[in-house]
Design a binder for these strands. Structure first.
Length: 435
RNA sequence: GUGGGAGUAGCUCAGUUGGCUAGAGCACUAGGUUGUGAUCCUGGGGGUCGCGGGUUCAAGUCCCGUCUCUCACCCCA
């Protein structure tokens, strides 16, 4: 029989990898909770339409769809490529019963039918946080803060990562005030989005191909070169543009007050694809720029209503595990959820099988992770096994156990050991010396 | 969909102008060790050299095809 290989773009999580994944997820969970978010989840597949109604049919080629043989209506299913549509569906369903703002997070497993490359797989985990029901810029600030709060908790400094922030609505107003037609905006977004991948001359050439009007081209080039919010101020030529600008200034001010101002920069080139964003948008990158974005998000005030619900404002972000893990490995900050045993019981005398099993059983029933060797082998080998399983303590049961009910308890971290009564120890294992 | 790179043990790799039974380190495993765990010593298992064809007395090595993986482009919710 031929061996069947793992599917391209998927990962096997052996215990070592699983420990890393759990460590990452645990960090996401802790930071979510301390920022006031509660966890939710949805099904791993949905109706295909849930994704196509928002993004159009071309998305079908980028997700895994499944014919539903059991369905009478013939509607196809799709494995979730993102969780936001599920979130919108769930929130819409109970919108009148949920207290606002709704602050939810999730760590869904997602699948996309793409060609895998560095930092991008076909199956991955993505931390999502969303704040629904508030149009306050404080909500945008808290969303961005939560992302940075997590990265900062891992030891990443402002010199390692940066949140580049802009505003989709401000940019739109700005462009229209400069004379661009509303239907040309998407083209300009693509232009700005591609700018970082091009040299200056490549970009000039590309921009000239896209914008035929010389005056507009000049304005576009000047806009693209803007480095700070201050430079933008003279270009504000409409009330709507000024409002978007003021909101963005408020956002930066709030992030500074939250203590993460040095992680944040204005970058007019952040537009987040062609998705559903309506206000502030951001992406977090490593400063080394060798990796794709770690995290991306923004305000999406029209999504719930576009999916059949009421007009409810919302903001949030997604952070994938793949790029994150690459960056952490690069910086030497990758950790794993250490597995360990509380006790490893060493049997130094074959006559003690029953006594050893009794001790193991009693320790386990009190909640202590406890193991022993299946083989009757030398004490030295059993110590090796205990060390290999990361046991905190070993208990040696041997001659003195038979003669006077004594065991030897050893602290594996510092090597100290002590003789004590087996019965007393089992009654209260927590009062272990040196632990 | 387009282009580059790479496929030899579980992992990282070596393998000469084609030439004995294809190797090393790590990992795994057993013992040296009848009560003490990092970097002790000795042994053992594990390979369709990605796959198929060709050239040759002889192919891991040369030629052709093919598959897979990987990196980049496109796209990126």
């Amino acid at each position: 029989m031929p061996k069947i290989p793992p599917v391209k773009g998927t990962r096997d999580f052996y215990p070592a990898e699983m420990a890393i994944r759990n460590w990452i997820a645990q960090g996401w969970r802790e930071v979510s909770q301390r920022n006031g978010f509660v966890e939710y989840d949805g099904p791993i597949f949905e109706y295909l339409q849930l994704y196509t109604q928002k993004s159009g049919d071309e998305i079908v080629s980028q997700l895994f769809s499944i014919p539903d043989r059991a369905a009478r209506d013939g509607r196809d299913l799709a494995i979730r490529p993102e969780i936001t549509p599920t979130l919108a569906r769930m929130v819409n369903q109970q919108i009148n019963a949920l207290p606002r703002p709704i602050k939810w997070f999730s760590i869904p497993r997602l699948c996309r039918a793409e060609r895998p490359q560095r930092g991008r797989l076909r199956e991955f985990f993505q931390w999502n946080i969303d704040i629904i029901g508030s149009d306050s810029v404080l909500a945008d600030a808290e969303s961005i803060f939560t992302a940075i709060d997590y990265l900062r908790s891992l030891g990443l400094k402002a010199s390692d990562v940066v949140a580049r922030i802009s505003s989709r609505s401000m940019l739109a107003e700005l462009l229209m005030a400069l004379g661009f037609a509303r239907e040309d905006l998407d083209k300009i977004y693509v232009l700005l989005d591609k700018r970082p991948k091009m040299t200056e001359s490549e970009f000039s050439k590309y921009a000239a191909e896209q914008i035929s009007d010389a005056d507009l081209l000049d304005k576009m080039m000047r806009l693209e070169a803007v480095q700070s919010l201050d430079e933008l101020e003279p270009m504000l030529q409409s009330d709507a543009a000024r409002k978007g600008y003021a909101d963005l200034c408020e956002l930066f001010k709030t992030l500074k007050a939250l203590g993460v101002g040095d992680y944040c920069e204005f970058d007019i080139k952040i537009v987040r694809g062609l998705a559903y964003y309506t206000g502030p948008v951001f992406e977090i990158f490593d400063r080394g720029k060798s990796l794709r974005a770690l995290c991306g998000g923004g305000r999406y005030d029209n999504l719930l209503s576009s999916m059949g619900g009421p007009q409810v404002p919302a903001t949030g972000f997604g952070m994938g595990d793949v790029v994150l893990e690459l960056l952490l490995a690069e910086k030497g900050l990758l950790r794993s959820e250490a597995s360990h045993l509380d006790f490893f019981v060493i049997n130094a005398d074959t006559e003690l099988d029953d006594k050893m099993l009794m001790a193991v059983s009693r320790l386990r029933s009190q909640g202590y992770a406890t193991a022993f060797s299946y083989k009757k082998t030398g004490v030295g080998k059993q110590f090796k096994q205990a060390a290999a399983q990361n046991a905190r303590h070993t208990i040696v049961m041997g001659r003195e156990t038979i003669e006077s009910n004594q065991i030897t308890l050893k602290n594996m971290a510092d090597g100290s050991q002590k003789e004590l009564s087996l019965d007393k120890f089992l009654e209260n294992p927590e009062e272990i010396p040196n632990s």
